[in-house]
Structure formats: C-alpha cells, structure tokens
Amino acid sequence: MDLDPVVLARLQFAFTVSFHIIFPSFTIGLSAFIATLELLWIKTDRDVFHRLSRFWTKIFAVSFAMGVVSGIVLSYQFGTNWSRFSEVTGSVIGPLIGFEVLTAFFLEATFLGVMLFGWNRVPRWLHVLACVMVAVGTAMSAFWILSANSWMQTPTGYEMRDGLAYPLDWIEIIFNPSFLHRLPHMLLAAYLTTSLVVLAVGARYLLAGKFTEEARVMMQM
C-alpha cells in the first residue's frame, strides 16, 4: 500500500502540535496563577499562598520542561516535514520565531531559575518579581507564536520575489488580520484551562478532607 508522504507529514505534525499545545496552554495560565499567589502572599502575609505557590511551581516546572522539549521537535518538523514551505516563507517566519526566543524565552529562562531555586535564597520581593516576569514571558511567547501562526493563515506585509516571500512591513506582518482575534482567544483558553485544573485539584483535596485550607483557596480563586 502506497502512503501519501504529504498525508503522513500532516499526521505526524498534527500529533506533535496536539501534544505540544497541552503544555503551553497550561503553563501560560499557571504562571499567571502562581504570580497572583505570590503577590497575594507578599500583600497579606498569609502562609497559605506561599504553600500553594510552592506546590504549583513544581507542577509548572514539569509542564514547562515538557513544553520546551515538544516545542523543539515541532520546530525541527518545519524543516523536515515542510521544507519547501520553510524555504519560501523563512524570511518572515524565521524572524518571528527568533523574536520569541530572544524576548519571551530568554525572559522566562532568566527568571525561571530564581522562581524554582530561589526559595529562602533571595529576598521575597525578588522571588515575587521572578514569578511575575515568568508570567509575562509566557504571555509574550504566546504573542509571537500566535503572530507567526496567524500570518500563515492571513499573510500580509510581504512580497514574492523569485518564488520567495520577503518582508515589507513588519507591523503588518506581526499584526496581521487574524492575529488580534486569535491572541486573546488563545490567552483566554489558557487561563480557563488552568482555572479548571486548579478548581479540580482543589475540589479533590476538599472531598478527601486533606489540605482543606489550601483547597478552599484554590476553589475560591
């Protein structure tokens, strides 16, 4: 039986994307939740927010790592599965992905170490700042990735020369017609996903009669 290489490439890419998106969706919302917990901790001095922050930070670390690893595979598949597309649009897509790495990912990576290993090692305000910066970084990452993905659907601000796409206006490229609709949709989906996970965990602990104070806080937030 002959299998169409294009169909196989689509199936492989679809599987990778479907697996990968679980983790960014969760980490975008979870980083914002952890930052909120840290801000409430420093504002109210209630230890329950500190305990919850430490609990969810461990889960965030695993989810973030899985997102990075699966994202690397996804990046490689642009070249292996869609080499001709990458060749044609590389002058536009490449810089957008590069902007994501140079701004969002470097910001996340810089403060992630403080967030994970700074407990009792750095001042409280610095740890709170690190959590906020990681949350900002994840949102910025969504900004650039959604910009690149939206441009693939509604390309603007470029011209074709010798069969290759060349950028003309980066503002038009970044803020292409579908981007302003898709970015809030993605961010809202990420925050809702995390909210439901936190709610489910809180409900489970409350039903089990364990960590009831933390469970109530999770369900109330």
Rank of each mutant, 00 (worst) to 15 (best):
T154H: 09
G157L: 00
N149C: 00
P167C: 03
R161E: 14
M140I: 13
S141D: 11
A148T: 09
I171C: 08
S147T: 06
V134Q: 14
P167A: 00
W151E: 00
Y158I: 06
A165Q: 02
Y158G: 04
V134I: 11
N149A: 10
A148R: 02
A139G: 09
E159F: 01
D169A: 05
R161L: 07
M160R: 10
I174N: 04
T156G: 06
M133E: 15
D162C: 04
W170L: 12
T138H: 10
I145D: 10
G137F: 11
I145F: 10
E159A: 00
G157H: 02
E159D: 07
I173N: 10
S150N: 13
E159Q: 07
S147E: 12
I171P: 06
L146Q: 12
R161Y: 10
M152S: 13
W151I: 01
G163E: 09
D169Y: 04
A135D: 14
W151R: 05
A165P: 13
T138M: 11
A135P: 08
P155M: 07
I145G: 07
P167L: 00
W170Q: 11
V136M: 11
N149K: 03
S147V: 13
I145M: 14
L146W: 00
W151Q: 01
W151N: 01
P155A: 05
W170A: 11
T138S: 14
L168V: 14
M160L: 03
Q153K: 12
M160Y: 09
I174R: 11
L164R: 15
A142Q: 14
M133Y: 15
V136E: 07
Q153M: 04
W170E: 14
V136A: 07
A165Y: 12
W144M: 04
Y158T: 09
E172R: 13
T156Y: 13
A142D: 10
I145H: 09
V136Q: 09
I173G: 10
R161M: 12
V136Y: 04
L168P: 01
Q153C: 00
G157T: 02
T138A: 15
A165N: 05
Y158V: 06
M160V: 13
N149Y: 04
T138R: 01
D162A: 13
M133S: 14
T154Y: 09
S141G: 12
W151S: 01
D162Q: 13
T138G: 05
I171V: 15
L168A: 08
R161F: 02
M140E: 11
Q153L: 14
S150H: 12
L164C: 02
I174G: 09
A148E: 05
S141E: 03
A148C: 07
E172F: 14
